[in-house]
């Protein structure tokens, strides 16, 4: 009898131990074999621009004051943005606003006046006539528009190349990397009094601002792709454009692939001069090579 009890106790103990071992975390489960987990994986389809054909966008900054029609005042900032969808690359070509160029149907004048004479359509025509580059889309903003846009996206980080202290524009910056709010970004874009080359230096700084915005967008997009709508909203509220919404989305998805550090920011070379009492910029003859270079694939090589 005692032996039977001992056997029963041993069996019970063994069963309990076995059960305990069987449920010990980490022990291989016999009844429930582990599932083989697939490694984390992602799927992404962001319909960007495609094809080999470059896209050219004319970005204009109007000097319209509050209450004025931004489409009928002078354009103080003039840039062609060339986008090469296949290479996920872009280039920026700036024009000094005082460039003395033929304005179709209106003789020769400062390029800035094309918009006050004939709006964005004539500005586009002037640029196309000058460069031979077909402009696909234009977008125009104002002082207030730029300020609001930059504030809407939380500011932009700019590497200021040299000291800027100009009471006219309000620029008061030391060299180095700094984060601008809308008002500071506007001052940086407007200052031409203490930048090298005046109008030319200012155009280069405006290109720097575009690149700073591109970097900011990529950074934000990487963190959360949903920001694309915030950025589009900020743009739509503050620019006038003939870009249809689906194209704007494609451009945004293209932009998030473009490395801002590899984007060339070039200003058409020229020299200062005067026509009558007006100070103007005469564009160098070498600029023609620049245009044909960019026309080919949207990029300045």
């Amino acid at each position: 009898m005692r032996r039977r009890v001992a056997l029963a106790l041993t069996a019970l103990t063994a069963w309990m131990l076995g059960a305990a071992v069987g449920t010990t975390p980490g022990a291989p489960a016999t009844a429930a074999p582990l599932l083989v987990l697939k490694a984390a994986h992602t799927a992404q389809f962001l319909p960007a621009l495609d094809g080999k054909k470059p896209v050219f966008i004319l970005a204009l900054g109007s000097d319209a004051r509050p209450g004025q029609n931004i489409l009928r005042e002078r354009s103080d900032s003039i840039h062609i943005i060339g986008v090469n969808p296949a290479k996920h690359a872009a280039s920026i070509l700036g024009f000094p606003r005082d460039s003395f160029v033929p304005i179709p149907g209106h003789g020769t004048n400062k390029i800035t006046s094309a918009m006050s004479i004939g709006g964005p359509a004539l500005t586009v025509k002037t640029i196309e006539n000058l460069t031979g580059i077909h402009i696909d889309f234009f977008l125009i903003t104002s002082f207030g528009g730029l300020r609001n846009m930059v504030d809407s996206i939380g500011g932009v980080t700019v590497d200021v190349p040299r000291p800027m202290h100009d009471s006219f524009s309000g620029a008061n910056f030391n060299p180095g990397v700094q984060h601008f709010n809308g008002t500071q970004a506007l001052a940086f874009a407007r200052d031409r009094h203490d930048v090298p080359g005046g109008d030319l230096g200012r155009s280069a700084n405006q290109g720097r601002l575009l690149l700073a915005a591109l970097s900011e967008f990529r950074k934000d997009f990487l963190k959360n792709p949903s920001v694309v709508l915030e950025w589009m909203g900020a743009g739509l509220r503050n620019v006038q454009t003939n870009l249809p919404l689906p194209m704007l989305l494609k451009l945004a998805f293209t932009a998030q692939k473009v490395d801002a550090k590899k984007v060339k920011n070039v200003v058409v070379p020229g020299r200062s001069g005067t026509v009558g009492s007006e100070s103007v910029v005469f564009l160098n003859s070498s600029s023609k090579a620049l245009y044909s270079n960019m026309k080919e694939d949207g990029l300045i090589n």
Binding site: T42, A43, P47
Partner: peptide
Amino acid sequence: IFGYSVARDDRPLKA
């Protein structure tokens, strides 16, 4: 849906 950016990150079920 015209675009997506989606991840699968399955985990073992804790006891």
